[in-house]
Design a protein around this nucleic acid. Structure first.
Lengths: 206, 206
DNA sequence: TAGATTGTTAATCGATTAACAATC
DNA sequence: TAGATTGTTAATCGATTAACAATC
């Protein structure tokens, strides 16, 4: 039950449990066994029970799991009880798309966009202001930033990562096609879209 | 050397080899040992040699690997010698961002965007026309589609997947937060952005 | 109570790492 | 030739699956 011992394989399955259980709530399903959940989610019943038992005992022998309670437990494990403050570095199409994606319902609030383009600075995009990247440090000294989202070109991504890390960002969600180097206490999650496309083409030629 | 036996763990490392070797070409590096590559890429030298030897013998004892030859070999393994025809389903911010991402340099050509919004149909976005989703089948009967990119809301994603699959799309790059059900011969690669965000928040609370 | 299903231990499977003979 | 480094086999490690006692 020590979070730092949990393998990444388990951690990466948590969001899928969250999504699947949310769907079940919407459908009015009240209880579920690991066997039934297995059929919906595609993980083995054994793996499901192993996964949950990394974090505690959420079921009841002979009954299964209460969907609502289990969803709440998993939300808590993931950390969805908190609201997270995001800033997006790079007000291009991708940055704009992320502002508009609808993460806010889950507690992810984009507070500001940053760019170096004078044409964009000062504009409001989906209710979020575009701020001059030159005053990033000033902004960060006054506002908490949990997640810095990097959507800049690859060439400047490391420099931006350095700046947000030194200014106190706790984590980076990186869309630039580079492997960032950050201090030990900064968490990085990469979305390497080109890598995904290449995986797809490999499988296409199998 | 039978492609279908290769594990997904290996396949998902191929794009990173590609990126790392491309960077080395740009830097003018001509040869590299698995040990040196290990230090740059962060995989063990042993793993690197194991990975390559799934596909053939690309090195030379006592010398290492020729960077240019190795990059060409890996490009070929991934399938980058071909050009791929893409269509994007959903002309929202994300669809627009993907059209503009710059994949074309790697051989990924977006031929068309599809949407159901009369305001958008007929418009040209970054040189790509937005077509009425109602004539998707007509379009696909006349044009080859290797990769169908789904950027629609989750609710309609499965229906769109069904339509592109039956019309002959060979693969789907899915950005909707659903697990698509497709015929066996259609390859799906998911980009579940909400899942990535949740993984990040988990790690943030570790 | 009997049936069902969890929580947990043991067995299996697969992926990574270590070691070294082959060879450039 | 001697040194270096691959290709490949063997050992280890970790993750998944199977099994079953505990118990609701």
């Amino acid at each position: 039950m020590n979070r730092s011992n949990i393998s990444m394989a388990v951690i990466r399955r948590l969001p899928k449990y969250h999504r699947c259980l949310s769907d079940m709530i919407d459908k009015g399903i009240e209880r579920i066994s690991s066997k039934e959940l297995s059929e919906t989610i595609g993980f083995s019943a054994s793996q499901i029970r192993q996964d949950f038992n990394n974090f505690g005992k959420f079921g009841q022998q002979g009954y299964g799991y209460n969907v609502k309670d289990l969803l709440e437990a998993i939300s808590g494990i993931i950390g969805l009880q908190h609201t997270y403050h995001l800033i997006v570095l790079g007000a291009g199409n991708l940055g704009e798309a992320l502002v508009n994606f609808g993460f806010d319902k889950l507690g992810f609030q984009v507070d500001a966009l940053f760019d170096n383009d004078p044409e964009k600075i000062g504009r409001i995009i989906h209710g979020v202001e575009v701020i001059d990247i030159n005053i990033l440090e000033t902004y960060m000294s006054k506002n908490p930033v949990d997640i810095a989202v990097i959507t800049t070109p690859g060439k400047v991504a490391q420099k931006i990562a350095d700046r947000v890390a030194i200014s106190g960002a706790r984590s980076i969600w990186n869309f630039a096609p580079v492997d960032l180097i950050v201090p030990d206490d900064v968490v990085v999650e990469d979305v390497h879209l080109v890598d995904n496309l290449m995986t797809l083409t490999y499988l296409l030629n199998e």
